[in-house]
């Protein structure tokens, strides 16, 4: 085994992979969220539709998209490997255990929150990405160029399928839990821990864990309320 595979398949190496991909995915959340906010511009969805078009066609974005998909895949795969390993490390559990006495629910249930986010992700891709790419959606024309009306799709989906909107909001709560532990945890795994900076990192983590999912949840909530 070369030193690289040896390192990356060790427990610490895999944690490192989780941390790096996790932080990378957080950066994706930021990009995604800031793009989404264009839908709130009072221009009939033009900016949002142009943005959607750009995101689905520009070469550089395609490259980033592949990296992102890889990021997701590696993050998810590694989590499965680690979870299996961790389960095997305790083949017989305790008859009675009080984990809440020593650790937070978020930190112990990253697998659960992560899995639900994953299910959501698949559904989300089916609803928007797939429909946008292969589905039949109306188009609009701005200055002679035809655009798929993504803004319309988002609005109708959230307004008509109210249960989906609620599901989105619930999942955002779980994403919040996932980030609540994940962000700070990634720094710990990277070995970045210092009296001065760790409290700050933890605060930033909490801020991200609240603001980012809240930002995403704003869309279904907004459209539900404006039904």
């Amino acid at each position: 085994m070369s030193w690289i595979t040896q390192t990356l398949t060790s427990t610490i190496g895999r944690k490192l992979v989780m941390a790096l991909t996790g932080l990378f995915l957080v950066s994706f959340l930021f990009v995604h969220l800031s793009g989404n906010f264009l839908i709130f511009r009072a221009d009939g969805g033009r900016a949002f539709n142009e943005y959607s078009q750009f995101m689905s066609s520009a070469g550089i974005v395609r490259v980033l998209e592949i990296i992102m998909v890889l990021g997701f895949a590696i993050h998810i795969y590694t989590s499965f490997v680690l979870t299996r390993r961790n389960q095997k490390a305790r083949p017989q559990g305790y008859a009675f255990s009080q984990p809440s006495a020593n650790s937070s629910w978020f930190s112990r249930n990253m697998g659960l929150s992560g899995s639900l986010v994953l299910i959501f992700l698949l559904l989300h891709l089916r609803t928007f990405w797939y429909t946008y790419k292969f589905g039949d959606i109306p188009t609009v024309t701005y200055e002679g160029t035809e655009y798929k009306d993504m803004a319309y799709l988002v609005k109708t989906v959230f307004q008509q399928e109210w249960w989906l909107s609620i599901f989105y909001v619930i999942i955002m709560v779980l994403l919040s839990f996932h980030l609540m532990h994940g962000f700070g945890s990634a720094f710990q795994t990277l070995g970045i821990r210092h009296k001065k900076y760790t409290p700050l990192i933890e605060k930033i983590g909490i801020a991200i864990a609240i603001l980012v999912p809240a930002g995403f949840a704003a869309f279904p909530i907004y459209f539900l309320l404006t039904r």
């Binding site: 060790s10 427990t11 610490i12 895999r14 944690k15 680690l82 390993r85 961790n86 095997k88 490390a89 305790r90 984990p99 006495a101 020593n102 650790s103 937070s104 930190s107 112990r108 990253m110 532990h181 700070g184 945890s185 710990q188 795994t189």
Partner: peptide
């Protein structure tokens, strides 16, 4: 670390339960 892994201990998920 190699020995720790060979012994079959799990990986850390930073719950902090150990230290607590």
């Amino acid at each position: 670390v190699a020995q720790m892994d060979a012994e079959g201990f799990g990986a850390c998920t930073n719950t902090g339960a150990c230290s607590a």
